[in-house]
Structures are given as structure tokens and as C-alpha cells.
Write a protein that binds this DNA or RNA. Sequence first.
DNA 1: GTCTATAGTATGATAGAC
DNA 2: GTCTATCATACTATAGAC
Lengths: 221, 221
Amino acid sequence: MVPVENTRERLLAAAQRLFAQGGEEATSLRAITREAGANVASVNYHFGSRDELLRLVLEGYLEPINARRLAMFDAAVAEYGDHVPVGVLLTAFLRPDLDALADLRAHNPQIARFIGRAYTQPSASVAGFMHEQFAPVAERLIPLLRQTLPQVPEHEVRIRLGFVVSIITGLFATATPAPDGRPPMESPDIYVQLARLIAFLEPGLAAPPPPGESDDHRHLH
Amino acid sequence: MVPVENTRERLLAAAQRLFAQGGEEATSLRAITREAGANVASVNYHFGSRDELLRLVLEGYLEPINARRLAMFDAAVAEYGDHVPVGVLLTAFLRPDLDALADLRAHNPQIARFIGRAYTQPSASVAGFMHEQFAPVAERLIPLLRQTLPQVPEHEVRIRLGFVVSIITGLFATATPAPDGRPPMESPDIYVQLARLIAFLEPGLAAPPPPGESDDHRHLH
DNA sequence: GTCTATAGTATGATAGAC
DNA sequence: GTCTATCATACTATAGAC
């Protein structure tokens, strides 16, 4: 009946492609509409503004990843109860990212970089949005880590989780075959990647906190 | 005799300030000249182009850090010989960054973010430049790590060093007091920060490589 | 829903007077 | 070395015809 929404879908797909290749500021309204074969006004009509469209694109990638993380946390608790092993928690946290990364590498080898940049380059318009997406995951994971690692204070757990996030971010940011740069851990096998990350991260997460940390400078928050 | 070069210095200083506050694409040629009290043509006259100027600013921050890293590697080898402890190598690698970070936080709390972005957001113009700055450090450090950790294959050492770089990058990228986001490890004490990083990183670097890695999928490069 | 046309504003670079 | 003036080009957003 209604032939509607065709342009809208084309615009979304075009924004994904361009976002992928050049990042946010390279994805101009005019480039999007050109790529989609639509006119310059169509983005404002369908999405209100360029920024709204870019947020939608970003959400399309991040939301499924974080939803899957939460589901894997639930499954882990159902299986292990109060003391989920660190390796299991790390797997639940990392696998959705690695799967998404493998998928992006196969189908769109450029868009992963954009996601990585969205973390470190909040660009004002997506700044709060990134945190809004990630906060529920952190608030669920941190208590679980605390239960498994009671010797590590919460403040330290949060910082160490930040380290893990930085590494993941780096994987996304360097996913593209850069002409030169650090080797992007290009193994195609997800389980090899996961094993490598866990081998590196697990002992660090469980390590005793450094001296002078347990109750030092903790008088605020 | 010659009153020359005054404008040039003012332009450099202005570019640093603006670069710091808003990142690369927020630092327009016109904003720089306005901040420096010069005219729009002066940047092109003194530096050839806007990109040349921005590379100079970046180099002013990165070059001293990497030079200090190399010096600390030399000092460590002079003291320990062929088997420098991992913690000492990590200290030599991390301290120049942490010192620079502390200095930036004190004097210019915004520019650290820009440096972090320069890593993950190579922005075409500075892409090769970042690698050119970092490559000598990596090529010096990796053999030292290999000597201390012979059980970890070189391929794995390189990947793990990439993890360390990601974490450092994250520290720079989140150095600014973000309104919300992961806690930026805001301890003012560099030695606390260093101890925290080493406590987390050292066991991961020295960990036995994951199974299926030693000689797997190593038939290329 | 889709389009053209355009307003309004930014950009980097350069020519040429002083 | 420094300036003004200007070129050529990008951008987002909107008004209004169809």
C-alpha cells in the first residue's frame, strides 16, 4: 500500500557506509544524501538532523553488543552463582565485542574503526550517548567482579575495567589493516583472540592491589 | 638585529592552546590566527599549510616523551644487562607518559585528550606521523622484552605491547574530567599510578601464551 | 514524501598592496 | 613579514513548489 520509508532505509545504509569509511566528520549530510541517491533535505526530513541519524547508526551497532553482554552475565550467574570465575566474566564481557568485530571485519572492514573512535573521540554530540550505552553493563559487571575478587577494592576494580575497555577500544580502532601501525591481532579465530585476551587480562584483574591503594586517598567518593 | 619570528612563535602557542581545547578539526586556520592576533595568511606563510603547523604541535609533545623512553631503556640495560626485569622495562616505557600526562593535567587539562585521539583517530594527515614517532621505541623495547621473557613468542609480545599502548592511549584520551565516563585514574601521585599500572600489566605480559599460539597460523609474515 | 533552490556561515588558500 | 580582500569550496538547515 504505502511505498514509504524507502529513502529512509537508503539513508541509514548510506550513513553506515560513509561513517565506516571516514568517521563522523567525514560523513557530511551532503555525502550521505549523495551516496543514498536522495536529496540534501531528506536527512533533515526523516531524522530531524544529521546528528540524530549518526546516533541511530551508532546505536545500531552498540545496542546488540551490550544486550548480549547482559544476557551472558545472567547466564553465568545462573550457572555459577555468587562466585563466577574471572575468566567466565571476561568471556561474557569480551565475546560480544569479538563476534561483532569479526563480523564487521568480514562485511565492512572500516566501520570498526569508527566505533573505536566513538569511545575515545566523544565529539560532543555522542559524548553522553556512549556512556548511556555502556553504564548498565559496568554496573552489572562490577559487583560480580567484586564478589569473585574480594581482595580488590571497588575503586581498583573500576580502574582495571577501564583498562580492559581501553584494550577493546584499541581493537576496534585498529581493526582496519593500517598501512603501518601496531599489529591488529588479526587472527581470524575468535577463540584464539579470546584466549589471548583472557591470558593477558585475567592475572592483571586478579592481581593484589598495589601498596598505598587499599585505603589511601579514598576520602572522597 | 632581526625582529623576525615573533608571529611564528605566537602562532605556534595559539595552535597549542586551541588544539588542546577542541582537537584537530576544531582548530581552524582562522581560529589560530585570531587567537594569535595575526592575520589569516600568516599560517600559510610561516608553515606552508595548516596541517604542517598541527604536525609541529603534535611533535612538540610526542618527541620528548619518546626520547626519554629511549634514554630510560639505555639506562636500564646499563644497569641490568641482558635481562632487565619486566617491571623496569614497563617503568621506562610508562613513566615518560605519566609525567607528561601529569604536567598536561596541571597546565593544560585539555590537550591530553587530543594526544589520545591522535593515536586512535589518525585523521589521514597525522596517520603515518604517529607511527614514525613510535616505531623506534617499539623496535628497541621488543627485543628487551623477548630477552626477559623468552617463553613468550615475539608475535605475542608485539600484541601485548599493543595492549599496553591501548591503555596508555586511554589514559590520555580520558584525562579530561569528563562529565560522565570511566573513572580517569585521577590520582595525582605518579608513583601510585605507576604502581597500579605495573601491578596490572606485569603478570599479563609475563603470562604463558595461550594454547594454539606458539606455532599456529604463523605461516605468513 | 520528495525535490530544487537558497540562505547563512564556515573553511583553506592565495594574490597583491604596503 | 604583514596585511586586506577575495576565490573557491564546503557545510547544515529551511522554505516552498510539486
